[in-house]
Amino acid sequence: MDISTQTTDAPPPTPQPGIAEQKRNARGATRAGDRVFLGLSRGSGILLLVIMAAIAVFLTYRAALAISRDHGNFLTTFEWNTNVIPPTFGVAVLAFGTIVSSIIAMAIAVPIAVAIALFITHYAPRRMAGPVAYVIDLLAAVPSIVYGLWGALVLVPHMTGLFGWLDDFFGWTGIFSWDGGAPRSMLTVGILLAIMILPVITNVSREVFRQVPQMHEEAALALGATRWEVVRMAVLPFGRSGVISASMLGLGRALGETMAVATVLSPDFDIHASLLNPGGGTFAQNIASKFSEATADGRDALIASGLVLFVITLLVNGAARIIIQRRAEYSGANA
């Protein structure tokens, strides 16, 4: 990439090209072509930044409008009444539901995804590993609305047995008590989200595990390690930060997932101790469900809740990226 440094470091941010460059590109047409092309490509990059900034600005603007009209407390009110005057709404329930469903999804998906990634890279018979990886890729390509439809019409009916059993044995905890309603609850949402983010986490983890240098695994083997001990000594420590960032990416997905939650959850505006009884809501689900009946004020309120979601996902994804970058530096040092 050295060649590009010579020509790109030179031009300062102003449109005026450096004198050296002017001399080098003596022929006018050449220089014009280069400048147009550089302008176009750099412009596209800048456009992306502008879009990001615009998202933040416009969402904040509309959100500010909405919050200024809010009769309740935007952060703590357990209500979403936007079609009355004055409107009363708050995001506490949505924040709670979003976090709870994502935690359930992560608790289920991360261990299974890591196991499947290990299955593909270290356990599966060689002839099986390729097709399995392919199937996981396909899982990732299924649109979320189809997951939502499947979740609502297939998964939900299958949950009743499990819910009854959980209630029998763990109902006393309160978290798993169930009053026998339709299992359109946070737990079902969490399970469906887990299925949806599984491929994301699996694919990233798989890549990391695949990069574990052969020599580290052989070192463990030569010490008389069993396969699991090789995984524990050489593979997991090497892949840990990769798995963490993969999980964060999955978490970002789970936080923002809309349709699968909207189809499965039977929402209300309250915080429930039980994960099995229907109720609660998430940011994205609430936007999708309330949108069609929302008045202009209502839409602004929904945008305000979207802004909170935006900030949360930004933080989660930013953290994931920073971990990935740290890992890149770290593994480069050891290469």
């Binding site: 879009i51 809309t258 999708a288 989660v316 990226r321």
Partner: peptide, 24 residues
Amino acid sequence: YGRGRLAKSVTFFVDVMTGIPSIV
């Protein structure tokens, strides 16, 4: 072409943008 701070921030925000929920 990309070197310097502009390219770095574009790279970072492209990463961040990947994670924007579609509803946002």
